[in-house]
Simulated scan of single mutants.
Amino acid sequence: MPALALALVLPVAACGSDGSAGEPTRLTVLAAASLTDVFEQLATPFEEEHDADVTFSFGSSTDLAEQVADGAPGDVLATADATSMGLAEDAGVTGEVETFATNVLTIVVPQGNPGGVESLDDLADATWVRCADEVPCGKVAVAVLDAGGVTAEPASLEEDVRAALDKVVSGEADAGLVYATDAVAAADEVDAVEIPGAEEQPTSYYATTLEQASDADLAADWVAWVTSEEGRAILADAGFGRP
């Protein structure tokens, strides 16, 4: 093979997430727990179009933001509130921040509603759970409860919204305060009880690329996909509102 041709081939052979030819590029997305189902749906067409392998770390927005602020590896951060995203912004590890969806709080109960929880007022006589105060779903729960004049104490405070949902699905709680999208995701296992006025305390979602991204262009493509019209249509099907 001529020397020039060899020089052209070698860089291509070195491509890939770990230097191996033909392997998909890895993209690590750190995201709020309430995005679990919809982000996994969004990943499938993205992986096919970009020959990428998208991996997720779901959890409390606050915890994830603190991790990336401390330099933890990751390519994209998606949070369920501005305060958490602000932690990463203040650390100087974010790119442009995009608002891509909204959500509202609802009550979920086991199917058939054995605890008879039909409103926030019924929590006083029920075993119920919500997120801890310091995480986004906890902050909005406190706001909704205060607005409704509810003083009933939860049986437990959970680390993220999926942990709260799991307590209801497992039957450990008569009710839980979670996002409307979590009720949609678990529709075969729970019933939802709408909270009047909850739309006045919406949750907004934010996404950004990270300074420590191993492939900045691929990270930017993920944010662009989530904020695209097609991406937002998938979010809407999962119960999310537009920003």
Rank of each mutant, 00 (worst) to 15 (best):
W222V: 12
D146E: 13
A207V: 04
F46A: 04
S34V: 11
C131N: 11
D182M: 05
L42C: 01
A192Q: 12
A65F: 11
Q111M: 11
G86R: 01
A82G: 15
D215M: 08
E96C: 14
A192K: 02
T106I: 08
E23P: 06
L77Q: 00
A236E: 06
A132V: 13
M1P: 05
E229V: 14
K167G: 06
E159K: 14
T99H: 04
L105A: 01
L35Q: 04
S61Q: 06
A43L: 03
A7D: 14
D63A: 15
V93K: 01
G241P: 05
V144A: 05
R26S: 08
T79C: 09
V76W: 01
G116I: 03
A13G: 14
D125F: 04
G95K: 10
T106R: 04
N113H: 09
T209R: 08
V193W: 03
A43G: 01
V9L: 13
A21D: 12
D90F: 10
L157V: 07
S20W: 06
A155H: 13
E47P: 01
A164W: 00
C15K: 14
S34D: 08
W128Y: 07
D90A: 14
A238E: 09
E23Y: 12
E89R: 15
T102E: 11
P73V: 03
A155L: 14
A164P: 00
V93T: 09
A213K: 01
M85C: 13
A52R: 02
A88E: 05
A69I: 09
F58M: 07
D160G: 07
E47L: 02
I107C: 04
G22N: 09
V144I: 10
A163P: 08
A132H: 07
